[in-house]
Design a protein around this nucleic acid. Structure first.
Lengths: 195, 195
DNA sequence: ACAAATATGATTCACTGTGTATCATTTATT
DNA sequence: AATAAATGATACACAGTGAATCATATTTGT
């Protein structure tokens, strides 16, 4: 580590966690920090490793490329979001589900702002869409006037777009108001019966 | 021109138009062709100039970068689409406007498929959104429950998404059916009154 | 505490793509 | 025909990606 270690902490009793884990976390943290500053595409591996105080080559020992690191960062959060999204399509009253969803996103707004408002958004949305389509094929029973795959694609897109707007807005609506908006824009249109 | 020109057309009497125009058109055509094959980001300037049978350096004499060429290709079409979109927000019956919009896109579906289904889509949407927001600030009077900028962003996003789905779909709905879907998903939700 | 296994740091390399510069050649203009 | 402009071809500097290598630091098993 650095030259000041002997002053900052006892060399004899270091962090007992594995070095791998520390490097791993350092890379994830660095990407998250950088995502708050600039778009994903503009971030270089050199910047990530520099911010993480990790060797350049070390990056490629763990991840094949930038996208893999992003996926690693986002995978669990995406799964969580999807889990909170699905009940919407099984309940008559969608209000409760959308409120829970918005509350969750608001709670983790720092992370989601980084994920949704940079260049990472496209990748994130694709992953989210992929998972959602898998589930939808088996579970969701859409009205005939709207093909299921389009319904899912529309809802996911509208959800991501409205949430992105929410998270970058100067004076954002509270959770309840936002849930109402999400419900009207991303959920209800799919359920509206045909003429 | 290729090596068979001497067999196909007299070398002594070439196209009389300016050389600039020919190069210009060749670059635009090449990008359009490539957009039908792969995403915009994956297309290199070398590929464009190769396809256009134009010198590599020539590209940079006309455009500062790839994005400028894309913008040049799309600018007029975007303006046209916006012009067809706007009446939707000034008429009580939105059906006629969405039908006209879908008919226009279907008529130029080859171009729009290339523009909307590749990596160019994000840039296109941003440009479309920018123009739409300019107009909306002055003209559109949204319901209080939905901020104007979110309404515009939502409608543009939903429109782009539904149209993209339409243009890549195997057995796409006809113009009338698609206009109905667009109306329900991208237009009506913005106009729905609050509870 | 010690030795073996492993993770890392630092550096180098080949490769791809961008954008600029130069100069000879082709095309357009008059 | 003479001049001006556009182009082709090429070389170049630069940035970024991944792979490879070797010495060093750290962890793990005993």
């Amino acid at each position: 580590m650095n030259h000041f270690d002997m002053q900052l902490s006892p060399p004899s009793r270091r962090e007992s966690g594995k070095r791998i884990a520390r490097t791993h976390a350092a890379l994830l943290d660095a990407l998250l920090l950088l995502l708050e500053e600039k778009a994903f595409e503009q971030i270089t591996v050199k910047e990530i490793t520099g911010r993480a105080k990790v060797g350049y080559a070390t990056f490629f020992r763990r991840y094949p490329d930038k996208e893999a690191l992003l996926h690693d960062l986002a995978a669990q959060e995406i799964q969580n979001l999807l889990t909170m999204t699905l009940p919407i399509f099984h309940t008559a009253d969608t209000t409760a589900s959308t409120q829970a969803l918005c509350a969750y996103v608001w709670k983790h707004r720092k992370l989601w702002r980084a994920l949704l408002t940079g260049g990472a958004a496209a990748t994130l949305k694709e992953e989210y869409l992929r998972l959602a389509l898998q589930v939808a094929e088996q579970q969701i029973d859409s009205d005939a006037w709207l093909p299921v795959d389009l319904a899912v694609r529309f809802s996911v897109t509208a959800l991501v777009e409205t949430l992105s707007w929410w998270l970058i807005h100067d004076a954002p609506p509270n959770v309840e108001a936002m849930a109402g908006i999400v419900n009207r824009l991303a959920v209800q249109p799919v359920f509206s019966p045909a003429d």
